[in-house]
Computed example of a mutant assay.
Amino acid sequence: MKTRSVWTYRLIFAALAAAILFFALLPFGSGPGAIPGPELTVCLIAAWALRRPDYVPVWLLVLMLLLDDFLLMRPLGLWTLIVLLMSEYLRRRVDHAEALPFWSEVALVSGCIAAAFVANHLALVLLLAETPPLLGQALHALATIVFYPPTAIFSQLIGVRRLAPGELDSLGTRA
């Protein structure tokens, strides 16, 4: 795969993450008692990290996630660290995940998303920070899990596919 193609997909990822952030900043349904929406950036990161980890390098993830933290007024760096650890776990599972059927992949990512939300909540509690309601966080995690399959299918449709057996990524490695 040519370097130009890798950079094209990195730009596509950045544009998609920026579009998700833009719509997250719009004041739709953000009142008290509103049902929280999904964390689509996390879905996108998980789908791309499992399929083509060379398209989402760590520096790009840190940049996009810190921008999310700044603009969405979350504790700076906490969610970034948790999602980065999740993406690195998924990145290390690329060789194992290529043999998984789609619904097993969804189960793996669902467990990672649930663990990320639990880790975020526990970290906020341990730091004595203000925590959102637990039911709201559970619904937020559930919405994110529900939106992972469409995000993975969308990623496949725009060309972010798994490497075939024996195929090398842009860095000349298996993954």
Rank of each mutant, 00 (worst) to 15 (best):
V83C: 11
V83W: 09
V83M: 13
L84N: 11
L84D: 09
L84V: 14
L85V: 15
L85W: 13
L85S: 15
M86R: 02
M86G: 13
M86P: 00
S87P: 07
E88Q: 15
L90M: 03
R91E: 02
R91C: 06
R92W: 14
R92N: 14
R92G: 15
R92V: 10
R93N: 14
R93I: 08
V94K: 06
D95P: 15
D95E: 15
H96Q: 14
H96A: 15
A97Y: 06
A97W: 10
E98W: 11
A99E: 12
L100Q: 05
L100T: 00
P101I: 07
P101K: 08
F102E: 07
F102L: 11
W103I: 07
W103R: 07
S104T: 08
E105N: 04
E105S: 05
E105R: 09
V106Y: 06
L108Q: 02
V109H: 02
S110E: 03
S110W: 10
C112Q: 14
C112H: 12
I113S: 00
I113K: 00
I113V: 10
I113H: 00
A114H: 00
A115S: 09
A116V: 08
F117H: 11
V118W: 07
V118L: 13
A119E: 00
A119C: 04
A119M: 02
A119T: 05
N120F: 13
H121E: 11
L122E: 05
A123S: 13
A123Q: 04
L124E: 08
L124R: 07
L124I: 05
L124T: 07
V125T: 10
V125M: 10
V125W: 08
L127V: 02
L128M: 09
L128I: 06
A129T: 05
A129L: 15
A129Q: 13
E130V: 13
T131K: 06
P132T: 07
P132D: 12
P133I: 02
P133G: 11
P133A: 11
P133E: 08
L134D: 02
L134F: 13
L134G: 01
L135K: 05
G136D: 08
Q137V: 12
A138H: 01
A138F: 07
L139T: 00
H140I: 02
A141R: 01
A141D: 01
A141C: 11
L142N: 01
L142Q: 03
A143P: 09
A143N: 07
A143M: 12
T144W: 09
T144A: 06
I145L: 07
I145D: 05
I145P: 01
